[in-house]
């Protein structure tokens, strides 16, 4: 197992380097002069050639591309992503709190999604084809197909304005979590619930289930065994849901004025704040790699066959 962990972790390193290079290169493919972008981002009303030259020198833009990349990468490893073009403050001082806010929202949502989809997935698999199964699938299909922006607006209108139960937006109180978490859960639980359900169903017809039944094992024990085997899927789902939601909260965050990564990135893209965009892409890509690796490791612990295949 230790060997597997080392191998799997080592594989993640080159992947991250490639991602970092692409992130850096893509931002520099922009036809605009970065110094000009910085000055515009700072709102300087009139940009002169002298000012551009001065800014280029200050940013070290006059150095070769690869040297700048190496410097940037070395600083990134120390969580120093440079300074924001717009505010001039370190990128991490903007990205850190935003990441934390989005992580809070994501983790609460992922737990809700996991609880709901695992619970319903098992229930529906056990009651396959019955009224409960069909109605849960029907409702989840309906809820998942609703655009989250619309659902969010409707929920704010009903629960915040009409009933006056919850704040319309922001994260000033714990009540502020309820609406965004509900919207995210509704949007994703329907998808993940189906994955868990079908994975449970596939276990129903495995040889070992038939054998256990033939041996007269109590149904509760058989279900538990099936559950353990379908957990692999749940682990993958959970691990992949975190980065996916982390990267897709833009809509929900902007509607609920959640001061997270989504809002920060949209503003950075509009303001062409390249250092923030680069750091965001890098952090998100890293979170995909980390959670993917984590999911592989947990699955390998659950299923010894996976370790041998590697």
């Amino acid at each position: 197992m230790n060997g597997y962990i080392i191998k799997r972790t080592l594989l993640a390193a080159p992947l991250l380097i490639i991602i970092s290079f692409l992130t850096f290169a893509l931002n520099h493919l922009s036809p605009l002069n970065p110094a000009e972008v910085v000055l515009r981002a700072q709102g300087v009303p009139q940009i002169t050639q002298a000012l551009i030259a001065e800014t280029e020198a200050a940013l070290g833009m006059d150095r070769p591309f690869l040297i700048r990349y190496a410097d940037w990468l070395a600083s990134c490893l120390r969580l120093d992503f440079g300074d924001s073009y717009i505010t001039g403050t370190p990128v991490w001082s903007l990205l850190g709190p935003a990441l934390l806010n989005t992580l809070k929202l994501t983790m609460v949502s992922v737990i809700a999604i996991l609880a709901l989809s695992v619970g319903l997935g098992i229930l529906c698999a056990l009651k396959e084809g019955r009224l409960l199964d069909r109605s849960v699938r029907g409702v989840s299909f309906f809820l998942t197909s609703m655009p989250s922006a619309w659902l969010a607006a409707m929920m704010i209108w009903y629960f915040s304005v009409k009933l006056d139960w919850l704040p319309t937006s922001g994260m000033d109180s714990s009540a502020g979590y309820i609406l965004p978490v509900t919207v995210l859960t509704v949007s994703y639980a329907g998808i993940y619930f189906r994955i868990i359900r079908s994975s449970m169903l596939s276990q129903l017809y495995e040889d070992y289930t038939l054998y256990a039944r033939a041996c007269g094992l109590p149904e509760r024990k058989i279900t538990l065994r099936m559950l353990k085997n379908s957990m692999q899927v749940a682990v993958s789902v959970f691990c992949m849901a975190v980065p996916v939601i982390l990267g897709s909260t833009v809509v929900v965050e902007s509607i609920f004025a959640w001061p997270g990564l989504g809002a920060l990135t949209v503003n950075s893209i509009l303001g062409r704040d390249f250092p923030v965009i680069q750091a965001y892409v890098l952090v998100l890509a890293a979170s995909f790699v980390v959670f993917n690796t984590l999911s592989d490791l947990i699955n390998a612990a659950l299923n010894p066959r996976l370790r041998k295949e590697f």
Binding site: A153, V161, D164, T168, S169, S254, I255, A257
Partner: peptide
């Protein structure tokens, strides 16, 4: 000063008085 997105959220927050 509250940072809110344009459109529906701000409108609803105005309606609610936030």
């Amino acid at each position: 000063v509250k940072v809110l997105p344009t459109g529906e959220t701000t409108f609803l927050a105005l309606q609610k008085g936030e």
